[in-house]
Amino acid sequence: MSAYWSLFLDLTRRELRGKMSQSGTGWVWLAISPLLMLAVYGFVFGVIFAARVPDGLEVSFIAWLAVALWPWLAFADSVQQAASSMSQHRALLSKVALPRELLALSGQAATFMVHAVSYLLVLLVLQWLGNPLTWSGIGHLLLLLVLLQGFAAGLGLLLATVQVFFRDLKQILPIVMMLWFFLTPILYAPEMLPVELRGSLQLNPMTWWMDEIRAAMFAGKALPSLTLLPILALSAGGLALGLALFKRMAPHFEDFL
């Protein structure tokens, strides 16, 4: 078991280093790119669209957006990373016998972590810019992120399995993810939708996370409530299902890669 974890940690570390060393200045870009992105979103939505936050909040739209956007990026990017991990590590899979789920999970975890670090940085900058974030909710936020990571890992494993058999998924997934992004209240608040649509928004599990995350960072929700139950169930269930499917199919991957 310890060898398993040690391999997982090593693979994750290697993925992280791979992300760092893609550009010459590595770590610097890890800090700069989220800030630049924050600036772009601030310009587009704050200046061009002059978007507004829901009534009763004392924060800028950009802060309101960013708090939900980075968890989404972590989720979406890491799921896509996991989905393509098997073809990405094809050479390794066909020559070295190792627990294959680790190849999917390490890339997924590394991607999630990079976004999580960016998120923290963005939150600090938002605070510094004078947006009153309720830091008392940070514990709740971290718990939500951990649960989101679990869900992303489960979904990533599931899609990694599917992509071995259906390579078209690689083309389809980014579009599906984009649609999912717009169906999730990230750029908008659920209250902005017509009443009859608000209910169906709750069918999207990412809505649950976004509501909770905003509640933590803007309303200072520090303690989990019953609304956490479905999130917890989805995170654990998704991970278990993804892992079970992956492990069932993984011995046959080499035939289809």
């Binding site: 058999f165 259906f166 199919m249």
Partner: peptide, 13 residues
Amino acid sequence: QSGARWAAFWGLL
């Protein structure tokens, strides 16, 4: 063919 891959996926699953 993708049909064969579907069938294989389903059979294995």
